[in-house]
Structure formats: C-alpha cells, structure tokens
Nucleic acid binder design. Structure first.
Length: 702
DNA sequence: GGCGCGAATAGT
DNA sequence: CTATTCGCGCCT
C-alpha cells in the first residue's frame, strides 16, 4: 500500500469559502478512508461463525452483470440469524446495499478476501428457496434481473408487523369430505372427477394438469375453491390467481365456505404496506397454505404447494407492467413445472396459450358435456341475421332490435322473472363523435384528440386535453352537425329506460363498478369486465350489444379478446337462460363460436391460424425498444442465431419519443435460446455502460 | 451505479 | 517530479 507523510495542520478549519474547499474535502475524506482501512487491518478480525462461516448473498444492485450471488463472512454473532432467506446489509463496491442470504456454506470459491456481513436486517426468512429458484427461472425467461423479480416477490418489510405473532389457522371444519363437495361443484364437467381424484391422492402418480372451459351459469368460484380444498385436505397448499380485486373477494368468500374461517389468505394488490406484509407473513410462515390473489400472488411462498390455479388467463391484467414484465400464467406454469404441482387453467373462454398446453399434451382439457351446454344456455344472434330481419323488418340495423327487447321484457316480467345483463363495449355517453355530413371523426381543434360527450346534452369535450369544443366545425367539410356512431353505457341506460318504461335500471362501468346485484327483475348495463354477479343466482338473460365494435379493436388478438369478453358476460346467465348477441356479422368465427358455445374449438382454430402466420404461441417473440441508433448498435452486437427473424424496427409508442421497436422471432422450441441471448445482451450492455434497451419477452398486445 | 486505480496530462 | 483529470474495470 502507498505510504504517505501525514498532512500536518488542520486545513479543514481554514477551508470554509476558500477555493481550495473541494480538494481539501476530498483529501480529508481520502485520509479518513485510509485511516479506516488501516484500522480494519490492525483491529483483530471479528470472530467468524464456526459452522458455515460463508453466506451467499444476492445483492440489490440494478446492474444486470452483477446479478449473481456474492460471498460474505458471517460474523459469529450472526451465526444463527443469517439463515437463508433473511434480509442483510452488506458492503458492496464501497457502499451499503441490501441483499438476501440465499445459502450458507463452509467455504467460498471466491479467490479474494471476503468482507463480513454488515448487518442482519431481520431474522425473518422471507425469501424461500423455491422462490429463489423461480426468480432465477423468471429472470432468465424474461431476460431480466433477479433483483427486479425479487422486488415483485417480496413485499417491503414492515418492522412492527413483523413483531406481531401470526395467528394459527383454525382446524378444518368437520363438514363433509372435501372431495365430495368438489365433485358436486364440478358436476357436468368432464373429466373433472378424474382430475379431482388425482388431486386428492398426490401419491397416485404425476400431478394432474388441466385447461378448463367452465359451463355457462356454473359457480366457478366454488369450483376453484373446492379444488383448493381438496389439495388442502391432501396436505398440500394451493395458489389461486384471479384478474382483479373483486374476483379476489368472490373467490375468498368461496374459500371460506369450502375451508372454514381463517384457513386461507387473500393477497390484495391494493392493500397498504402493513396489511400487505402481514398477509405475506401469514403465507411465508406457513400459517396458511391456501392463497388467492391478483398477479403478484403468483410469486407467494405457499408452503407445500400442490396446486396452482389461474382464472380467465386471457385478461390483460395478468401482464405485470414492471420489468421484466412477467405474465402470471407463465409464472404459475413455470412454478408448477419446477415444484411438480397440479395445474388448473380455467375460464369461460380459452386462450391460444391454453389451447397450446392441451395440444402439446402438457395438460388435459376439461369441458362441460354437450348435454350440459344444451340445458344451460341458448345463444342467438339478432340484428344482422337475415332470418331475424325477415321476421322483423323494422329491426334492421336497430341497435336494440325487437327480438332483444322481447327477450328482455320476457325475462323481466315472464314466468321466471330475474335480472337482465346488457353488455356495452364502451363506457360514457357518446364516447366518439363524427361529422354528421361527411362522417369524418370529430377532432379537438387544439390537440387533435378525439371528442366525446360524457352526459346527455353535454358539450363535446376532448378526451386528451379536456378542451370543451362548444361550436364544433368539421375540419374537412366545415359542417357543424355531429353524430354519435358509438353509443356508450350511459346513453344505453337512457335508451333502455325509454324502451322499457317502469323497468329498474342499474349501471356498472369502470368508474363505478357494482360487485353484485340482487336477484330481482332489473336491467343491468355493464361494460366488459365490470359485470356484477347476481347474488346467489344468475341472469335470466344476457344481451351483448354492439358486437361489431368489440370485434373491431385494432389488436392482433381482437377476435380472441372479443369472444372472451362475450363469454365472460354470457357465463353469468342462470341455467336455462338465454343470451342474445346483437349487431355483428353472424358468419364471423367468434360469433359462431359464441352461438355454439365452443371456446375450445375457436382457440384451436385461432392457434392454427397464428401458427400459419408465424405468431405466438407457435413462435416466441421479444421486442426491443430504444432510440434508433441504439437499436442499430444492438443489432450489431446481437449476432442473432440463424433461427431468429428480425422484424422492424418501427416507430414505437407516442410520437413525442424517438424510440423504435424491434421484434425478434424464433420457433417456439428455441424460445429458451432467445431468452439466453437477450439476457447476455443486457449483461454485456450493462457492463459496458451502454444506454439501456427495454427488452420484453412475450410482449402483451403484440 | 459509484469508486479506485492507473495512465495521461498540465503544472511546478 | 507532483497534482489533477479522465477513462476503465470491478464490485465477495
């Protein structure tokens, strides 16, 4: 080490305001550091733990090339607390950083000297071995860092909550055997009995895996909850993911019925930090082993995990918006493979990914029997159907044709009156406007944003900047008249109120969502995803309005998504009820699949069509987003393996950024290689301090 | 990302 | 020869 004559004189005191301030401060800091280093060398080394004196630590640094464990010495006084899974503080590259102990060992492979752990933050093991493994798998799969995944997996610590004791779960209720309850909830689905049998007897062969299309009118929350109860009764944990908080509540209620009070935990994304950490600890400490939650719950450390469940896996809420953008379905499936658990991918609809699981033989299909479907529901198309039009000439082009109105009247006042659900694709009053003369979409004169009217008689207002355009004039033809080609939920409520005088009207949209409605005659207008369920029953009828609009979304998956939305509403019909879809091309495959209630067949055909077009799930794609020059650099250093197809780059996102997007595509079998290559790319770039590139494997919306 | 170290450079 | 700056590589 360099030896220096100590500076004499306390320069620090004469520094204030002097030009020499900065160098002096630097010098004094350097001297302090030197002193410290000398002190460290002179001081007898702190005693180190006698057994397994080395801790392998995942340090929380955002750099991809440092995303691996580093070894530290365990001080003797931390010998018992520095167990795998606990949070620690360590000195890393000259600074204090957070980390998790992932292992203890006798020696390190590291050649240099090891630094001691600075502090065991808490003796609570919060990072479980199976989550460490899952984290590594996900980081690889999504070409991201373990640190990013860990932030999704372990909630922030809350010290006071950690001091609390976790109440012990009460014993299971003495109520009848869970397998019988499950068989009854799953009646009419085939071959559900075999699945449940395997689930009840984990020793009887490999864990069962199934993709389930649920029968319309079935109580799916009870189906999922009773399956969880079967796993629980077999001594295994269960993890259920649902799209949103309302579904968490619904499944949570069903779990209470199936398991008794206090035997499961509902993990809520919207809960505050203390609530979140308390619920997490109940799971982490193994006090409960049945868990329901939204997408983040897919990483929960459920003890003895024996079953993973995802409901309605086509919902885009399952895509995590934070890096590395994992999808809850993929998380659960990777986890199921890793921990050899049973799997249920269930919904009224079936995604192409679900179809692929069946097609590849990885999972079995479970579906309602044909007889069940015949008994449960009648689906009709109205409005554009020629026969309908022939019978009802006045109904041609009508948004709410007579056939649909008759159905609603009958449901409200007929022999078995009940509520009617009317699904409308768009919320609001007139969510888009066009020139009455030339049909040009009405644009904001200030920012060219789309104009909309939010209430009856309201002023056209820009949906982007909020500007009220009181005297609109068409930019193309100069006309001042406006028409509303799309009518929103509120306008629909108004129209239905006129068409059905005396009927009770309710509305449920994104802004104001009704969770349930009573089982009494009423017209319930809802937007997709906001449909209330009927308390203890189903809808007497379901009307799907403006199906052409749902189909017209500019999304590669618009057909799949449209059918998913319709089935989501139509599935809430009571047994023997009727569904009417209004206003689309009746020959459209998605509407045909709805009429025949054939989500599986539709998903199969869609999967085949996507394979033909070279789209997932037959291929795996990844998108890289960065400014054009950066992407050029990336392409040069990528040296893509021969099977990679490069598409683009094309401008990405809003016009105010110069970001471009590049899409890489490989055959499905090479997906893992693509992930490896992109992970290496990120590590190399991070080590070279090259500008960041956003990498998304399986980007949603592509 | 930040820090330490060595090479390069300007100043003595 | 020394003080300062800058760029690069490493981080247990």
């Amino acid at each position: 080490m360099t030896h220096r004559v100590p500076d004499e004189g306390p320069e620090e005191q004469q520094d204030a305001g002097q030009p020499a301030l900065l160098p002096a401060v630097v010098r004094s800091q350097a001297r302090a550091a030197r002193k410290k280093a000398e002190a460290r060398e002179k001081r007898p080394p702190k005693p180190v733990a006698e057994v397994e004196p080395v801790a392998s630590v995942l340090v929380d640094v955002p750099l991809a090339h440092l995303d691996r464990p580093f070894d530290y010495l365990v001080p003797a006084d931390a010998a018992e607390t520095a167990r795998p899974g606990v949070r620690v503080k360590v000195r890393f590259a000259g600074q204090d950083v957070d980390g998790f102990v992932v292992a203890r060992k006798d020696a390190s492979e590291h050649g240099g000297t090891l630094r001691p752990l600075r502090r065991v933050v808490s003796a609570e093991p919060v990072l479980h071995p199976e989550v460490v493994e899952l984290t590594a798998t996900l980081a690889h799969r999504y070409a991201g860092t373990r640190g990013d995944v860990l932030r999704l997996a372990v909630p922030p610590r809350h010290a006071t909550v950690e001091k609390e004791q976790t109440p012990e779960a009460p014993p299971p209720p003495a109520a009848g055997p869970s397998l019988d309850a499950a068989r009854s909830a799953w009646a009419d689905h085939d071959p559900a009995a075999a699945f449940l049998g395997h689930l009840a007897d984990p020793s009887g062969g490999p864990a069962p895996r199934a993709v389930v299309t649920v029968a319309p009118g079935a109580d799916w929350t009870s189906m999922l909850a009773t399956a969880a109860a079967v796993a629980d009764a077999a001594g295994r944990g269960a993890l259920l993911c649902v799209p949103d908080g309302r579904d968490v509540d619904r499944v949570s209620a069903a779990l209470t019925r199936a398991l008794g009070e206090g035997r499961h935990v509902a993990l809520r994304a919207d809960a505050g930090p203390s609530r979140r950490y308390r619920d997490f600890l109940a799971v982490s400490r193994g006090a409960v082993r049945v868990v329901v939650g939204t997408r983040a719950a897919a990483l929960a450390p459920v003890a003895d995990l024996g079953l993973v469940v995802i409901w309605d896996d086509g919902d885009d809420l399952y895509s995590e918006p934070r890096a590395p953008y994992p999808h809850a379905r993929e998380t659960l499936l990777l986890r199921a493979a890793q921990q050899d658990t049973a799997v249920l991918v269930a919904g009224f609809a079936r995604t192409v990914e679900g179809a692929q699981l069946v097609r590849s033989g990885w999972a079995h299909a479970i579906a309602p029997t044909r007889e069940t479907l015949r008994e449960r529901v009648t689906v009709r198309l109205a409005g554009a159907d020629d026969r309908e039009v022939a019978r009802d000439p006045a109904g041609r082009g009508a948004r709410f044709p007579t056939a649909a109105r008759d159905l609603v009247r009958d449901a409200l006042t007929g022999p078995a009156p009940g509520p009617v659900l009317v699904q409308v694709p768009r919320a609001g009053y007139a969510p888009s406007l066009a020139c009455d003369t030339c049909r040009t979409p009405a644009r904001c004169p200030r920012c060219a944003g789309p104009l909309a009217v939010t209430t009856a008689g309201g002023v056209p207002t820009c949906r982007w900047c909020g500007h009220a355009d009181e005297h609109h004039r068409c930019a193309v033809c100069g006309a001042t008249g406006l028409r509303a080609p799309v009518r929103g939920s509120q306008r629909t409520v108004e129209e239905l109120g006129r068409a059905l005088p005396g009927a009770r009207l309710r509305s449920s949209t994104g802004e104001q969502v009704l969770v349930t409605v009573p089982d009494e005659p009423a017209v319930v207008v809802a937007t997709p995803g906001a449909e209330p369920v009927v308390e203890g029953a189903g809808y007497a009828a379901v009307v799907l309005l403006d199906t052409w609009l749902t189909l017209g979304r500019i999304d590669l998956r618009s057909d799949e998504e449209a059918l998913r939305r319709w089935l989501g509403a139509a599935g809430l019909v009571r047994p023997g009820g009727t569904v009417v879809a209004v206003g689309g091309d009746p020959t459209h495959p998605a509407l045909q699949a709805l009429v025949r209630w054939d989500p599986a067949g539709f998903a199969d055909r869609e999967t085949a069509a996507r394979a033909e077009a070279g789209l997932p799930p037959a291929t795996r794609i990844a998108s890289l987003t960065a400014p054009a020059d950066v992407l050029e650099e990336v392409l040069a250093q990528l040296d893509p393996p021969p099977l990679v197809t490069v598409l683009g780059p094309v401008p990405a996102g809003p016009a105010d950024t110069d970001d471009q997007r590049l899409v890489l595509r490989v055959p499905r079998a090479d997906g893992s290689t693509l992930s490896t290559v992109l992970g290496d790319l990120q590590r190399t770039r991070s080590a070279r301090k090259q500008p960041p590139v956003r990498v998304q494997v399986d980007p949603p919306g592509l």
